[in-house]
Amino acid sequence: MSEAAVKSKTVRFSVTRQDSPDSAPYQEEFEVEYRPNMNVISALMEIRRNPVNTKGENTTPINWDMNCLEEVCGACSMVINGKPRQSCTALIDQLEQPIRLEPMRTFPVVRDLQVDRSRMFDSLKKVKAWIPIDGTYDLGPGPRMPEKKRQWAYELSKCMTCGVCLEACPNVNSKSDFIGPAPLSQVRLFNSHPTGEMNKAERLEEIMGDGGLANCGNSQNCVQSCPKGIPLTTSIAALNRDTTLQSFKNFFGSDRV
């Protein structure tokens, strides 16, 4: 391609903007000069450098969230051409134009494309997504984890709390208080750890509460949408089995702790 042809190429964006958490959203169109290997974030940075829309009006720079820029932090998730995903790995060459950018409305919008994912971090606290190892004295080494199981658990540990699965889930919405797939899968991760397993019942009982696991309607959008390929629906089904057994234990009593 000649130099001139590359220079004339532009990338068009249609961005859903919102000035404050309570104000009404509106559309604004932008056009930026194409560069090879561009992604949505580098285009947004380009717009930020010179915030002028296609009508030639000066406007405010677009607000969005980002951090790692390599799809491991989950912060830059937004709805791109109708699908929630990370904007850092959304390559311009692979997207249909005008590229439509919207915030993930399942979460409260802070400004423009930036949302508040606090509910997910609160959920992780709620389900005790950690392994308690602190004691008043040295508890010594914990039980060992077989290598094969470690590799299996690593897949579940790839969750970056990005919120894409909650955005895709039809049962996570303003009418329901469903906790959503991501924190549920974390329960399976920590319950399968040899030390974490010691608090298995506590985590299961938490997700048996209101807004918990039973709210899943098996649409399985989560597993289709997860950017990390986490087997979310397998986690949910496995937890269905665990909580069913736990509920029998709670009701009838058990010979085991």
Partner: peptide, 22 residues
């Protein structure tokens, strides 16, 4: 009650299981 608390989204996510859900 369950049916009306769902926010169906088959137009955006037209996967087989999501259609079955709807």
């Amino acid at each position: 009650y369950i049916a009306f608390t769902a926010k169906n989204n088959t137009s955006k996510y037209s996967y087989f299981r999501n259609w079955m859900f709807y």
